[in-house]
Design a protein around this nucleic acid. Sequence first.
DNA 1: GGTCTCGATTGAAACGTTTTAGAAGCTTCT
DNA 2: AGAAGCTTCTAAAACGTTTCAATCGAGACC
Lengths: 329, 329
Amino acid sequence: MSAAGIRQVAEHAGVSPGTVSNVLNRPEKVSPSTRARVEASIRELGFVRHGSASTLRAGHSTTIGLSVIDIGNPFFTDVTAGVEDVASDRGYAVILSNSAGSRSKEERNLLVLAEQRVRGVLITPSDDSPEPLDRLRERGIHVVLVDHPAHRPDQCSVAVNDVVGGQTAVAHLLSGGARDIAYVTGPLTMRQCLDRRAGAGRALRGRPLRVVEMPAMTPRAGQQAAEKLLSEGDLPDAVFCANDLLALGMLRGLMHAGVRVPDDVALIGYDDIDFAAASAVSLTSIRQPTYQLGRTAAELLLDECDNPGTHAHQQIMFQPELVVRESTR
Amino acid sequence: MSAAGIRQVAEHAGVSPGTVSNVLNRPEKVSPSTRARVEASIRELGFVRHGSASTLRAGHSTTIGLSVIDIGNPFFTDVTAGVEDVASDRGYAVILSNSAGSRSKEERNLLVLAEQRVRGVLITPSDDSPEPLDRLRERGIHVVLVDHPAHRPDQCSVAVNDVVGGQTAVAHLLSGGARDIAYVTGPLTMRQCLDRRAGAGRALRGRPLRVVEMPAMTPRAGQQAAEKLLSEGDLPDAVFCANDLLALGMLRGLMHAGVRVPDDVALIGYDDIDFAAASAVSLTSIRQPTYQLGRTAAELLLDECDNPGTHAHQQIMFQPELVVRESTR
DNA sequence: GGTCTCGATTGAAACGTTTTAGAAGCTTCT
DNA sequence: AGAAGCTTCTAAAACGTTTCAATCGAGACC
């Protein structure tokens, strides 16, 4: 039970606690010789600063929160990796929360983050309601939206243009000769799903789009959507899935029923996760700069935290990119 | 900047701060009527407990650390999901660290966790050295090993039998008629890789095993391993990959060169990640109870934290399971 | 009526840092 | 020689909780 505190270090080095604190936080304020002495004592006693005491007194922590919708989705894993890398470089710790698409779980998680007095929060909101985030901001917790454009100019956000993505996907299917197109999507309360549908509609210029809405965006849900389409008897020419997990499930479901992809039905996914290229029929998809999304969001947040004076809020919008593979050839 | 503290709540409810604290931490110690009054004040003022102050005074936090080797690997994502679910249920927050297989990054991350005064740490160590973990334990931080059997009886661990897994994998390849088998692995400093090789050796009973050691366990590395095998000219009958990411890369590499799987080369992976079933040739693999691994580890850790008196250290070992698919038929 | 016990509540002292005002020691300037 | 201005360091007061001994009332018992 070593209790090596700043006090013991001070005593060991023959200085006052305040000086040790200065060595830790403003090394330039202390003369080289005493600084060396203090640093030696720190090493010798194995001193580790007590983060909570520090946070309590200083009024702010060195921890940020990351709230994602589905940690099982490689899309969010990549985002997380980007966030982690930036935070770790700057000496911040990341608290990870998974809202699993549930609004109430998200609120509970945000409460925990508020209790921890995180410096800021990166969040992919599960819906559009601003109140929970406003409540954080009232508490002085900075918020940056991830994969969600900000509705207001006084906050940072990083997103990818989903309307363009949806439009690109469906335009590609149309150029391949498809006429009867189905859109398999997660809950239409999700902005991503809505925007991608809007893009699809734009590409269709008024022609109809079959919409199959599933409660989740997982391979399992994708397979169920396939079964649903099959049971209706009348298969579309092409299927646009709102993410690759749905698409992989759809692919499995179709193949299982003997439907050939792309010969009988063309298939396109979204996100271009690593596994899209390795599936039974390699998957055409819409690529997003995922890791970069996480990095950029974290950089924005930490800039907001560390330079509150000079920080300018930005709403960054990346552009998606079509990656053609076998499933639409 | 609402500063609603325990003090304001006390004043608002007409009690002392100590009573509010009791309502928060030992509700049974306070009479129903005052409890209701205090709870009303808490809601009305929007009070959120200051975690750092609480941690500082109480001497322990309500946060645990999770240190994994590769957050990009679905295996660890599933583990993380299990941990997250348990922790969140019990009101704990999870700080996620990714060591990316680097010992120095792991040590830096553990230092951050020590500073945060986490209650405990779940860790998949990147190597076998016990010192960093002992240092945590000296500080009163509980440690549970994940996917790594404990070498000592005074600590908890949760693992899956990798020797049996390796043996099962290679026995399956042998039973399919393979004689010349290659083992494609990550760094042999990793226990998992070593144990799986040992199991392979046991199944081979002295017959030789080609070992291809790659610096990482990613699809890219798998593809490079394929290129290496192809450039040597003399392909094995079967390839056993130390995880599914390597196997998916291997599959892609082989197919790219026109090698048929399983006709020319049989292929088996490890972990049975979701995507193994959906790949170009569905992948035979060794399934591990991944989510359960995370849940169990978290439960063990929180039991150790919350009931230090009655807690009995356990070394839990799950058994892996063969899942046969196209790649070895 | 006095003493005891018991439950509910209070008051004040921690917890380990950071921060601020200011003391102490030097150098430089007048 | 004294004032002024630095630099370097110290002492003590916070930060918002939890905890523990002490207090207060209200029944119960003799």
